[in-house]
Design a protein around this nucleic acid. Structure first.
Lengths: 334, 334
DNA sequence: TACTTTAGCTAAATCGATTCAGCAATATGA
DNA sequence: TCATATTGCTGAATCGATTTAGCTAAAGTA
């Protein structure tokens, strides 16, 4: 049951390792190897149960058939669904995924990127966090294959796959206005992230085209670090200080979850007075006591596009600084 | 910026690669290398930015500093939280995680196990599915380090980390009975899985100790393949055929989710007549329109224990056929 | 006949680290 | 003084595949 190597085959058949290697890599024709000999090699390989040693091959060729996935947090449903989509898609190319979570901390993500490069991954799929600019610049300099998902940096050229945060956000807010809402509050998250900024700009634009003034007291920002506490504070301030609010728009599903939790715990559920919307939802939103209007992110497509990009790069299909943008599914805004 | 190898250092200093290797692996004392020389080596290594090549080392030593994680589906919150716990814990040992989802299909899980072994992972953490017995037997024969989580096979010795499915299930059902429920229906899932069988046995035992007879019309089984449709059918049958049911107990949170969805869509919400309970919950259960009583799985601890087991095996701390069982958090049953 | 092609194959270097076996010089002990 | 330890170090083999450079013999060509 011990492992069978190239030389085992070559010895048994009295041919060179080189020849066996050529045959096993399907280069028999190209290398003008006698058909009979090639057949014998294949037969012997099957007989002995030969399989090329992954590490030896990876060391020699520099290809690991593995990609590294750096996300904020795999236990977050958005990322776990994305991870699943990437896993499925990249499996079609015979690749595997090695992953790590950064917790929105660029020290961690930098370390993950380095470790994955050390492990010779053929490419990286990264959901970058605020301080990651330098890591991305470094990857550019090294020409290491990578693609950013969900977020990118305007000032740094990169291959990236994004959702139409601006457009989706615009539609949601525009819809709130069209349905008669006058004072639409916005709770945003980690404002420095480009995707979050874009959602904010969508909100601004919807106000603008409808002739609304931006009211800064209606906009709250919450940080990743203490999201629960800060969301509660934001809700409290919005509802107490500004009692005329008739709509609250959450920049993501986590905020929406916490906001709704706050409302339920405080028994605020007059939805005629207060309408809710969120950039994206979760599976259980249809089961909630509170009606909420939301978009659906094309997570699966996000993974597929990211894999497409990284595989093109790995196979030198010349892909550079390509910015893909996927539309939101807006069927649940109303 | 090209990579620096051992021989670069050895050439620059005029010493052997052997010596450099010893120093870099912290075996200078053990190998009686002159302190001065050792210092010089370390200094030079730092100067040149030397880092041992992962693949070369892995090939030579047979250690990859990577473990393989085989789950049913990483996009399922239970598994993504488990994956996160494992990731965090194993990072403390300088390890990374490569993962794959089996979709409860033993062909897929078998392939994943083989691929991960090919990639020379130092150990496997596996959430096995029904047909995986032979794969586990094979691992036993090969003495490949692995640990099963969430499920195991009674007839096959294995290291495994389980939740107390039986005890948790017993408590939940016992509580339903104690609070006066007479006809407690049970919707189970993929019955051949040991964890699901144990939950069923907990249900049985609770009936028994309270002097209830098992009523087979109250027990429904749903399969992984078509969980949504089958859960709806089960709900329909239970509620129509057996109108005296006053409690429904779901074997997991996914079933509970679907069951509640059914009830909401069909406007059945008289919780005085019908009480709900589930083996485990999700974050948003407190926000639901329906009250439901549930346990909480010690997912984080599950990951920690699994990592503990696999690391002990990898480091030959002689761990064999150890069956760990973690208690459920039952604070939310009432 | 002599020279070029081509088919068919192989030895050896290479990737980069680890480790076995052992050498030389100095120190210690009887 | 001679034998034995000990210190300090190294050459070469090894892990297993890939790949470069090149060889031999037969076939083709002029």
């Amino acid at each position: 049951m011990k492992k069978v190597s190239l030389s085992d085959i070559s010895k048994e058949l009295g041919v060179s390792k080189t020849l066996v290697s050529f045959v096993m890599n399907g280069r028999a024709k190209e290398k003008r190897i006698n058909d009979e000999v090639a057949k014998k090699v294949l037969a012997k390989a099957k007989e002995l149960g030969y399989k090329a040693d992954y590490l030896a091959r990876a060391m020699r060729t520099g290809k690991s058939q593995t990609i590294g996935l750096v996300m904020a947090d795999i236990s977050n449903p958005f990322f776990s669904k994305l991870a699943r989509s990437i896993e499925n898609e990249i499996a079609k190319f015979g690749y595997n995924v090695i992953f790590g979570s950064s917790d929105e901390d660029h020290i961690k993500s930098g370390k993950l990127i380095e470790v994955f490069k050390d492990k010779k991954v053929d490419g990286l799929i990264i959901c970058p966090t605020v301080g990651d600019k330098n890591h991305i610049k470094k990857l550019n300099k090294e020409k290491y294959p990578y693609v950013l998902v969900d977020r990118y940096f305007k000032e740094i050229p990169s291959n990236n796959v994004m959702v139409d945060n601006y457009g989706g956000s615009f539609e949601i807010v525009d819809n709130q206005i069209k349905s008669g809402r006058k004072k639409i509050a916005f709770i945003n998250f980690n404002v420095e992230l480009i995707n979050m900024m874009d959602r904010f700009h969508g909100y601004l634009e919807a106000l603008k085209v409808n002739g609304y003034e931006l009211d800064n007291t209606l906009v709250k920002n919450v940080s990743f670090k203490d999201i629960e506490k800060e969301t509660y504070e934001a809700m409290e301030e919005l509802l107490n200080v500004n009692p005329k609010i008739d709509s609250i728009y959450f920049a993501n599903n986590r905020l929406a979850f916490l906001g709704i939790k706050y409302l339920i715990e405080n028994n605020i559920n007059d939805l005629k007075k207060l309408q809710l919307s969120s950039f994206d939802g979760f599976d259980f939103m249809p089961l909630m006591q509170m009606h909420i209007s939301y978009g659906i992110q094309p997570i699966e497509q996000l993974g597929i596009s990211a894999v497409d990009s990284i595989m093109k790069q790995i196979n030198n299909k010349e892909e550079s600084s390509k910015h893909a943008m996927l539309p939101m599914d807006l069927s649940l805004i109303n």
